[in-house]
Amino acid sequence: MIQIEDLQLAAALLRHPSLSAAARALDLTPPALSMRLRKLETTLGVALAVRSARRLSLTSEGERFGREAETLLANLNTLRDSLQRADQGLSGTLRVVAPFGYGRLHVAAMLARFAKLHPRLRLQLDLRETPWAERHEADAVVHIGVVRDSSWVGHTLAANERWLCASPAYVKTHGAPTAPRDLAQHACICIRENQEDVTLWHLRPSVPHPTRRSETVRIAPALTTNDGGVARHWAEQGLGLVLRSEWDAADAMARGSLVRLMPDWAFDSAPIMLLVPSRKGRSARVQALVEFMDKGR
């Protein structure tokens, strides 16, 4: 007979790229996980994985069983939530993954308010450089930018335009660009994120214009980092132009340490999304978080 532990094993093998990673997720040693896998294969009468000296890959039967296991586990969680008495409120664990900067500044505060509403709920917030890559470990993902995955549903938390900024000192020394072609004459600061081509900047007129058209400019960055806060700080120190999300640049502009440049041109926006699995099998915890964050927009 298949046990819940078997479903958890199959789901972990589907989510993780290696036997050791799956073992860590289940709090097992790799030998113990291998033993449980062999026992499960004997019970089912099919091979779920192909083992080599360095890695383990799932067979087609293993992938199918892993997907079905994830669905069954989600349904069990939903059933448990639906059977809870209303006066007990939400319980269990809710795992949220978010980007470093926005996570610290906004998500942490939102989750603190959410936790006060649901004191029996255990909340986990993991901050990552690339949150979407960690989705298999999460109940919800806060992501900056568009994601196309039919198995996840996106809720827009903020439109989040990107603004071109520089310090007043930089503008005083080097002048301000007024057209896309001017960018090649300036020191630019780029941020590596979400595996995008960060040196390719797309611009379009902010309002319809008889002579202006959308343009794409290739930037030769003077400085590059994977941390948006570092990039903003470099720009505040007068080291160059930076393209930053409005949520990050607004405070610096209010302080006067940055000014917005080329407001007549719009750069690609990067909507802030709350991504959750499709409604099928969605837990009450996740649904409550969606409703709470939608109201807090």
Rank of each mutant, 00 (worst) to 15 (best):
M1K: 08
I2H: 01
I4M: 05
E5Y: 06
Q8G: 08
Q8P: 01
L13I: 03
H16N: 12
S18F: 03
L19M: 03
R24E: 05
A32L: 11
R36K: 14
K39S: 10
L40T: 13
E41L: 04
T42Q: 13
V46L: 04
A47C: 03
L48I: 08
V50A: 10
S52P: 11
S60K: 11
R67H: 10
A69Q: 12
E70G: 07
L72W: 10
L72I: 15
A74M: 07
T78H: 11
R80Q: 12
D81L: 07
R85T: 09
R85A: 04
A86G: 05
G89F: 02
L90S: 02
T93N: 00
L94S: 07
V96L: 03
V97S: 02
G103K: 01
R104M: 00
A109D: 05
A112G: 08
R113L: 07
K116Y: 11
H118V: 08
P119M: 01
R120H: 13
L121M: 05
L123I: 15
L125F: 00
L125A: 07
L125G: 01
E129P: 13
E129K: 03
T130C: 05
W132L: 06
A133Q: 08
A133S: 09
A133Y: 15
A133V: 14
H136C: 00
A138M: 02
V141C: 09
I144A: 03
S151C: 03
T156A: 08
L157I: 15
R162G: 00
C165N: 13
A166G: 09
P168W: 13
A169W: 05
Y170Q: 06
K172A: 11
H174Y: 11
A184P: 03
C188W: 09
R192G: 06
N194E: 03
E196K: 15
E196F: 04
V198T: 05
T199H: 05
H202K: 00
P208M: 12
T211H: 10
T216W: 00
R218H: 15
A220H: 05
T224R: 13
T225C: 01
D227Q: 09
D227H: 07
V230E: 15
A231G: 04
R232N: 05
R232L: 11
E236C: 14
Q237F: 08
G238P: 04
L241I: 14
L241G: 02
V242E: 01
L243W: 06
R244C: 13
S245P: 06
W247S: 11
A250D: 15
D251P: 13
D251N: 13
D251Y: 09
A252G: 01
M253P: 00
M253Q: 08
M253Y: 05
A254S: 13
A254I: 15
R255H: 14
R255V: 14
R255D: 04
V259M: 07
R260G: 06
R260M: 15
D264N: 02
A266C: 04
S269P: 06
S269Y: 04
S269E: 03
A270W: 06
A270K: 12
P271H: 05
I272L: 08
M273S: 09
L275Y: 11
P277M: 00
R279H: 03
G281N: 14
G281W: 07
S283N: 03
A284E: 09
V290C: 08
E291S: 05
E291I: 09
F292T: 08
M293P: 06
